[in-house]
Amino acid sequence: MSDTLAAAAALVPDAGQRRVLGLAGPPAAGKSTLARELVDGLNRRFGPGTAANVPLDGFHLSNAQLERLGVADRKGAIFTFDVDGYLALLRRLLAERSRDVYVPDYDRTLHEPIAARHVVAPGVRLVVTEGNYLASPAEGWREIADLAIELWYVETPDEERLRRLVRRHSSGGRGVRAARERAHHNDVPNGELVKVDRDRCARVITTGPWRS
């Protein structure tokens, strides 16, 4: 982690400027955990409010919209995110640095996106944003590479990711069998799509088992 934090610290711009660091990778690779650790580490090193976390998961389409589109069983696939809204937020974060910008997140208890759970204050110099598809060249996603100072790829062995996914779905209310079916039906193919874009990232970071 020390080398990864040092690499992130090298991307922090001077006061009054702002950059975006993107973390891509397949589901349950450890992107959210790494983003939080980087933000905490940078704020300890440079002072509170230096870095902030902006998760792509806040731009999940709502369950109502997924039902309307007939893709509720594919939640988490690349086409189930509001990529235009996400890009608009990133552009706003880079252009507007004089007032607070509120950022949505995803609630794994409610299984819905939640508005304004995070805030990026004017003094934030590095925005760490993470999500499965940040390195995708697909329409609507490829602009992210132009906005970010760097894209990093976060990975962990597939068997570890599957274990995390089953635990995630089980803690969200599914039985173990249903959790495994959900992971294999949806998360595994989504992860294979993400892996294709690994080489588009400037750095590859391998995470270990989650700490309890």
Rank of each mutant, 00 (worst) to 15 (best):
Y102L: 15
L23P: 08
P55M: 02
R92D: 15
S171H: 13
I144C: 05
T156G: 11
L110P: 03
H185I: 06
A202D: 13
L126Y: 01
R91D: 13
R211W: 10
I78R: 14
L11P: 06
Y153D: 01
R45V: 07
V119T: 15
V103Q: 10
H185C: 12
R168Y: 08
R117G: 09
D158A: 13
R177M: 08
I205K: 01
R200E: 10
H169I: 00
K31D: 02
P113S: 06
F59I: 12
E143A: 15
G172E: 14
G22L: 10
K195W: 08
I114A: 14
T4D: 12
G123D: 09
R211I: 12
C201G: 04
R182V: 04
T207G: 08
T33A: 09
L110C: 07
R125H: 06
V194F: 02
A35D: 04
A145T: 03
S212W: 13
A24N: 06
T50V: 09
K31I: 10
C201R: 06
A15M: 09
G41D: 08
L5S: 00
L21G: 04
C201P: 00
A77N: 05
P137T: 02
V196Y: 04
L90I: 04
H184E: 13
R182G: 01
A51Y: 03
T207N: 03
V12T: 03
D199F: 06
A35V: 02
E150F: 05
R164V: 05
D197R: 08
G208T: 04
N43P: 10
N132R: 05
T50Y: 05
W141D: 03
D158I: 03
G16F: 03
V12H: 07
R18E: 06
P48E: 15
T156S: 15
W152Q: 01
C201E: 00
D199H: 12
E159K: 03
D146F: 08
L93M: 12
D73F: 05
L134M: 02
R68Q: 14
A179Y: 00
L5D: 01
G49L: 08
V39A: 02
E67T: 14
R180M: 14
G173L: 05
A9N: 03
L89G: 06
P55F: 03
L21E: 05
D100M: 07
V154D: 00
A8W: 07
S212I: 11
A24Q: 01
V196S: 08
F59P: 07
V124L: 09
A52M: 07
R211S: 14
S136P: 00
E67W: 12
P104Q: 10
L21S: 07
A8Q: 08
N53Q: 14
E150T: 00
Y133F: 10
V194G: 00
V103F: 02
R182A: 10
T156M: 04
A77C: 01
R174W: 07
V101R: 07
S2Y: 05
T109D: 13
R174Q: 14
P209W: 09
G208L: 09
K195L: 15
R200K: 10
G49A: 06
L151Y: 05
W141N: 04
L165Y: 00
D73C: 12
G173T: 05
F79Q: 15
I78V: 15
S171M: 13
V120E: 03
I114L: 15
